[in-house]
Design a protein around this nucleic acid. Structure first.
Length: 272
DNA sequence: TAGGCCATCTGGTCCT
DNA sequence: AGGACCAGATGGCCTA
C-alpha cells in the first residue's frame, strides 16, 4: 500500500522549523527515546534551557565541546545544545538530499503536477536507473543505425554522422520543456518492457532495464506498433529515400501523463 | 488495522 | 576535532 497523496502538498520534503518543533515536541512529550527531550532549533540560543546563555557562555560552551572526552562533564543543557547542532546538520543534509531527489523527479519522464502523487524515493531511483540505461541503449542503437544507413555512402545533403550520429540533440535537456516527457519516440518508456517487435534493443542495457524494473506493477505493456525507431518520422532523408533517424526529425513524444496513468496506477491513479 | 513512506533523532564510523 | 555519512529506531500520516 501506499500513501504520499496528500503529502505532495501538505508535507514538504523539508518541514518548516515550526513543524519540526511541534513534531519533536510531541516526541518529547511522549517520552521520546532519545537522550534529549529536544525542542527544535538551529541555534542553541533558541533552546529554552539555554536562552539565558550569553555569547561568552556559548563560546565557552564551544570550547568545551571541542573535547569529546570532556563531554561527560557537560551539563544537560550543553549536551542538548550539541545534540541540537548535530541534529540540525543532519536535517539540512537530508533536506539537501530531498532537494536533489526532487530535481531528479523533475527530469524524469513522469507526469508532474500538484494533482499527481510524486514518485517515492525508491521509485524515483529505480526509474532514473532504468531511464539512464534506456537512453544509453537507444543512443548506441541510433549510432548503429546511422552508421548502417549512411556510414558507407553519401547521404542527404549536409548530413554528417558526426553531427547526428553523436546525438548531440537527441536527448532531453534538463530544464528543457521536453525533458519531463518520454522524450524519444525511438525508444519505449523506461518503465515499460521492451516492445515485442524490438530487434536490436535486446542489448545488455535493455535487459538490465527489464531485470531491474520494479516488481510492484509499475510496468505495463507498451503501446503497440512502436518499432526501434518509433512509430513515425516527420520526413524522409533527402535523396536517400530513407527515414532520417535524427531525433529532431521525429514527431514529439506523447505526453507522459498518459503513460503515467497507465503504467503507474498506484502513483497517478491516487491523485486527488 | 496493517503496511508503505517519510522525517527526525541518534550514535557510530570515516574523512579532511 | 569537526563535519559528513550511514543505518537503526521511532513515530506520524495516509491508504486499502
Amino acid at each position: 500500500m501506499d500513501s504520499d497523496t496528500s503529502r505532495v502538498s501538505s508535507r514538504p520534503s523539508s518541514p518548516e522549523v515550526d513543524d519540526i518543533f511541534l513534531s519533536t515536541l510531541k516526541k518529547s512529550v511522549h517520552g521520546f527515546s532519545g537522550a534529549v527531550s529536544s525542542t527544535q532549533s538551529d541555534s542553541p540560543s533558541d533552546i529554552p534551557g539555554l536562552r539565558g546563555l550569553s555569547a561568552a557562555d556559548e563560546e565557552a560552551l564551544a570550547l568545551r565541546m571541542a573535547s569529546k572526552k570532556d563531554r561527560k562533564l557537560l551539563s544537560e543543557n550543553e549536551l542538548q545544545a550539541i545534540r541540537l547542532k548535530i541534529n540540525s546538520r543532519e536535517r539540512k543534509r537530508m533536506h539537501d538530499l530531498n532537494v536533489a531527489m526532487d530535481g531528479l523527479r523533475e527530469v524524469m519522464p513522469y507526469a508532474h503536477g500538484p494533482s499527481v502523487r510524486k514518485l517515492s524515493k525508491i521509485a524515483t531511483l529505480l526509474l532514473a536507473r532504468n531511464y539512464i540505461l534506456m537512453l544509453s541503449n537507444s543512443l548506441e542503437e541510433m549510432k548503429r543505425l546511422v552508421s548502417e544507413i549512411y556510414g558507407s555512402s553519401g547521404h542527404h545533403g549536409g548530413f554528417h554522422p558526426s553531427a547526428c550520429g553523436t546525438m548531440t540533440h537527441a536527448g532531453p535537456v534538463p530544464g528543457h520543456p521536453g525533458a519531463s516527457h518520454a522524450s524519444h519516440p525511438a525508444v519505449h518508456h523506461p518503465l515499460l518492457p521492451p516492445p515485442p517487435s524490438t530487434t536490436s534493443l535486446s542489448a545488455p542495457g535493455i535487459s538490465a532495464v527489464t531485470s531491474v524494473r520494479p516488481h510492484h506493477g509499475l510496468l505495463k505493456a507498451p503501446a503497440a506498433g512502436a518499432g526501434p525507431l518509433g512509430s513515425s518520422f516527420q520526413h524522409w532523408g533527402v535523396g536517400t529515400g530513407m527515414p532520417c533517424p535524427c531525433s529532431m526529425c521525429q514527431v514529439p513524444p506523447p505526453h507522459v501523463s498518459s503513460m503515467s496513468s497507465v503504467t503507474m496506477p498506484r502513483l497517478a491513479g491516487d491523485s486527488k
